[in-house]
């Protein structure tokens, strides 16, 4: 390849880079998750107005659901959450239970559920919903490998999210990651409770979280815990239950760190 062509390519690349980052920086504000190292890797927190993918093995579906629910709880900021799911995933891992959602500290009143029959209508519904600026987040729950969710579909979702400011969360159970335009991609597993006797109560939900892809920072693997009372993630605690009750009047760290990106 001649030098001129290489330099032309380099110019084009830098142009694309500039276009993409300009777009991204312009739109994003970030929401801190509460786990220090993860927030550091994410440059301050999870980007809103973008798409995030959460993958898991088939039997880890509940853990991944918990993680996605937590992310949704962080980014929605008291706005409605639209949860789009495919009929089949309900047979495989059970239906999302609103009592369980409430137990995690989230508000079931703000959840609207869409029961899509197949992947196509689920995709179309979520693209439509992501373009609606009244929503805080849209969760798209798909089970298994799908050919319909390709780069074009992913791009569509990203553009819709950027235009409206809503966050798209993709819960992909029993699926392998494919190229996409997602801002981050996670692999989820359930983590053990901290060691203790068999009859001692388990603690808060714990996740073994692997960040597989991060467009604007490093990847990594951490243990994260969901604090139901504070409605945020945290470092894993050594004891299954909090020793003292958490203070009632605590400022929301998400609000403090919103304008980082």
């Amino acid at each position: 390849m001649s030098g001129a062509r290489i330099s032309a390519l380099a110019t084009l690349r830098s142009q694309i880079e500039r276009i993409e980052t300009a777009e991204v920086v312009h739109h994003h504000d970030r929401v801190a998750l509460g786990h220090r190292e993860v927030d550091h890797a994410l440059k301050g927190g999870l980007a809103r107005a973008a798409i995030h993918e959460v993958f898991c093995e088939g039997r880890q579906g509940a853990a991944a659901t918990g993680f996605v629910t937590g992310l949704a709880g962080r980014v929605t900021m008291r706005r409605p959450l639209l949860w789009v799911r495919q009929d089949f995933s309900e047979l495989e891992t059970g239906a999302l239970s609103m009592s369980g959602l409430a137990e995690l500290g989230l508000d079931p009143r703000r959840v609207v559920m869409v029961r899509a029959a197949d992947v196509e209508s689920a995709l179309r519904t979520s693209a439509d919903a992501l373009a609606c600026d009244a929503l805080g987040a849209v969760v798209l729950e798909l089970w298994g490998e799908t050919r319909q969710f390709d780069l074009v579909a992913s791009r569509k979702l990203t553009l819709a999210a950027q235009s409206s400011g809503a966050t798209g969360l993709l819960l992909r159970m029993a699926a392998q990651p494919l190229p996409s335009t997602a801002e981050t991609r996670w692999m989820l597993r359930a983590a053990h409770s901290p060691p203790g006797p068999m009859w001692s109560a388990w603690g808060a939900p714990r996740f073994d979280v692997e960040l597989l892809r991060n467009r604007h920072g490093p990847c990594g693997r951490w243990i994260m815990e969901w604090k139901c009372d504070e409605c945020q993630f945290s470092e894993p605690s050594a004891y299954p239950q909090p020793v003292a009750a958490a203070p009632a009047h605590r400022s929301d760290p998400a609000v403090l760190q919103r304008r980082v990106g």
Partner: peptide, 22 residues
């Protein structure tokens, strides 16, 4: 939007599952 949900017990781990089989 205005429904009254039962209040969850403070500083308790979740007592109900997140995914429930029909």
């Amino acid at each position: 939007m205005q429904a009254e949900w039962p209040v969850r017990a403070e500083s308790e781990p979740p007592l109900r599952p997140l995914r429930l089989f029909d």
